[in-house]
C-alpha cells in the first residue's frame, strides 16, 4: 500500500527533494489530540486535551514532568514520547549532578532534536511519531519550545500541536501580543480558549479531559509548590476554577467544519507529483 515510489526508505529523497517518511511522521503528530503552550514574562504553561478510548477507559496521559524546571505535553505516539521523555529526564539529571544547575531548556530540546534528526538520515530507522511542546524555566527565564519528528525545534511565544491545532493557532495568533504581561489566571484562560477551538462540535472542555501544566510563581488559586515555581500538572477538580473562568463561546453561524478525520493542512490527495505506483 505504497503512496508512491519514495516511501519505503526514509533515507531516500524524492525527486522533489522531500523525505516522505518524515512527512508521514509529522502526520502522526496531527493524529494526536491537541496541546497548546503559551508564555508570559513570568510563566510558561501547557494545556492539553486528553482522550479516552471509551466509557470504561481512563484518559490517556498527555503531560509529563521532566525535571523541577521542565515539563512537556505530547501529541502522537505515547510510546515514542516515553522513550524521549526518559532521555530528557536523564539529560536533566546529568546536568544537575555534574553542574548543579537546571539544564538550559534550549539545550534539552536540541538534544532530542538531534536524536530525531539521526532517525531521518540513518538506514533502517524510523522517525519518532510524536511531537512535544516543552516548557521550562532556566537562568534566562521561562521558555516554550516545539519539538517535531523532523528534528526541528523552535522557540515560541505561543504554539499548538495535534489534531485541529490550526484552530488554536488562529486564536493564539490573534491574541499573542497580550500574553507577555498576562498574569497566570489570564494566561490559562487564553490557553483554554485556544484549546477549546480544537474540540469537535458538541464536545466541551471538562475536568476529565483537560490538563494544565504550569511553570512559574504560584497563582492565586494554587497551594504553595515545592520547590517554588516548579513544574506542576493540574488535573481533575483543580482545573475546575479555571474552566469556570472561561468566557462563553459565541456561536458563530459558521459553515459546517471539516470532518474530524481529515487532519489540518494535510496535502490534498494527489497533490504531490511523485510517480504513483499502480495498485
Amino acid at each position: 500500500m505504497f503512496r508512491n515510489t519514495y516511501d519505503s526508505d526514509n533515507t531516500v529523497f524524492s525527486p522533489q527533494g522531500r523525505l516522505h517518511q518524515v512527512e508521514y511522521a509529522l502526520e502522526a503528530v496531527k493524529q494526536g489530540s491537541a496541546a497548546v503552550g503559551l508564555r508570559s514574562k513570568t510563566h510558561a504553561i501547557l494545556l492539553a486535551l486528553k482522550r479516552s478510548t471509551g466509557e470504561l477507559a481512563s484518559y490517556q496521559q498527555k503531560m509529563f514532568r521532566i525535571d523541577d524546571h521542565v515539563g512537556i505535553a505530547i501529541a502522537g505516539l505515547t510510546s515514542d514520547a516515553r522513550v524521549l521523555s526518559n532521555f530528557m529526564r536523564q539529560q536533566a539529571m546529568g546536568e544537575r549532578m555534574i553542574f548543579n544547575r537546571p539544564m538550559p531548556v534550549n539545550r534539552l530540546v536540541s538534544s532530542i532534536a538531534d536524536k530525531a534528526q539521526v532517525n531521518t538520515q540513518e538506514y533502517g530507522r524510523r522517525p519518532y511519531g510524536v511531537g512535544f511542546l516543552v516548557i521550562g524555566q532556566d537562568q534566562t527565564g521561562p521558555h516554550l519550545f516545539e519539538f517535531s519528528p523532523s528534528g526541528n525545534s523552535y522557540e515560541y511565544y505561543a504554539m499548538s500541536i495535534g489534531a485541529r491545532s490550526q484552530s488554536a493557532k488562529t486564536y493564539l495568533e490573534k491574541h499573542y501580543e497580550s500574553f507577555a504581561d498576562c498574569n497566570l489566571e489570564d494566561l490559562i484562560r487564553h490557553g483554554l480558549h485556544a484549546l477549546r477551538e480544537t474540540l469537535q462540535q458538541d464536545k466541551e472542555l471538562n475536568v476529565n479531559n483537560t490538563s494544565v501544566g504550569i511553570i512559574g510563581p504560584m497563582g492565586q488559586h494554587e497551594k504553595p509548590i515545592s520547590p517554588p515555581g516548579s513544574f506542576r500538572i493540574l488535573e481533575g477538580d483543580k482545573v475546575e476554577v479555571y474552566l469556570q473562568s472561561m468566557e462563553k463561546k459565541e456561536e458563530a453561524p459558521a459553515p459546517v467544519p471539516a470532518p474530524a478525520s481529515v487532519p489540518d493542512a494535510a496535502p490534498a490527495p494527489g497533490s504531490d507529483e511523485d510517480v504513483q505506483m499502480s495498485g
Binding site: 549532578m97 553542574f99 548543579n100 544547575r101 534550549n106 539545550r107 537562568q139 534566562t140
Partner: peptide, 19 residues
C-alpha cells in the same frame, strides 16, 4: 560555542570539579 546566553559560573565549575 552553544551561544545561548548560558554561562558557567563558580557554582557550576565547583560542582564539576568535585565530580
Amino acid at each position: 560555542s552553544a551561544q545561548d546566553g548560558h554561562e558557567l559560573g563558580p557554582i557550576e565549575i565547583h560542582e564539576y570539579m568535585s565530580q
